[in-house]
């Protein structure tokens, strides 16, 4: 693989936004999970949780300001589902253990990445909305505040389950591991693009970009 060629996948702004989001999310889980599990932790963690709640908000306006095109491509793609996305999800459990065959060619984002995006977007909106209610509970009716807690917990559980899969696929899973560099250097190996995002690869070929 000495002569492996790379293709551009994400702008540096998307990469920065991703890692701001990732660090914020991990810190939010580390400071919030103890309360969910009933583990006594220093009161200070409740303050730290709120600091990272604020940094968690930053990537969205940052992406819109710095790379509107990349942001739109991602959000649009997350909501455009076709048959091949569902076909991907159907064989995904086999793909996870490297046994999947005949996966239909995927877009820039495959069915799994689209599902990850949808859950991440909906999860973030849910967490921000309920978190806001919990932070400023004096401004809301007590009934609303009471329901914010179970919803915040449910959103957390779903997002943690998603991130566990997301992290494994990016650093552990043999086939999809090459994609990790896409979120560091913004490029992926051409062979990876061809194998995992066939339709995107074909598009690039058509446009003579590779």
């Amino acid at each position: 693989m000495n002569n492996e060629k790379y293709v551009k996948r994400f702008s540096k702004f998307i990469v920065i936004a991703h890692w701001t989001n990732a660090i914020s999310f991990i810190m939010l889980v580390l400071t919030g999970l103890p309360l969910f599990l009933g583990v006594k932790v220093p009161e200070l963690l409740q303050i730290v949780h709120r600091v990272f709640a604020v940094t968690f908000l930053l990537p969205t306006p940052f992406m819109i300001l710095m790379d509107r095109q990349g942001f739109m491509q991602w959000t649009k793609s997350a909501w455009s589902w076709s048959k091949r996305d569902f076909q991907f999800l159907a064989v995904f459990p086999l793909e996870l253990i490297g046994k999947a065959k005949n996966i239909p060619k995927q877009d820039f984002f495959n069915g799994g990445q689209k599902l990850n995006s949808v859950l991440t977007i909906l999860g973030a909106v849910t967490m921000v909305a309920t978190g806001f209610i919990m932070w400023f509970k004096e401004s809301f009716p007590v009934e609303v505040v009471r329901w914010a807690y179970p919803v915040h917990d449910a959103g957390m559980a779903v997002m943690v389950a998603v991130i566990i899969g997301h992290i494994y696929l990016s650093v552990g899973h043999p086939a999809s591991r090459p994609s990790f560099i896409g979120m560091t250097k913004g490029v992926v190996p051409e062979s990876y693009a061809k194998a995992h995002h066939g339709r995107w690869y074909d598009e690039l070929k058509e446009k003579n970009e590779i």
Binding site: G98, A100, A157, I164, A175, H196
Partner: peptide
């Protein structure tokens, strides 16, 4: 749910290590 995600990923990691699976495509 969170426990199931851990188990699924750990299971896949073990299977992939043992069988050398998951290496189609890519590099």
């Amino acid at each position: 749910l969170m426990g199931a995600a851990v188990v699924a990923v750990a299971g896949a990691a073990v299977v992939n290590t043992v069988t050398g699976g998951g290496k189609h495509g890519g590099d």
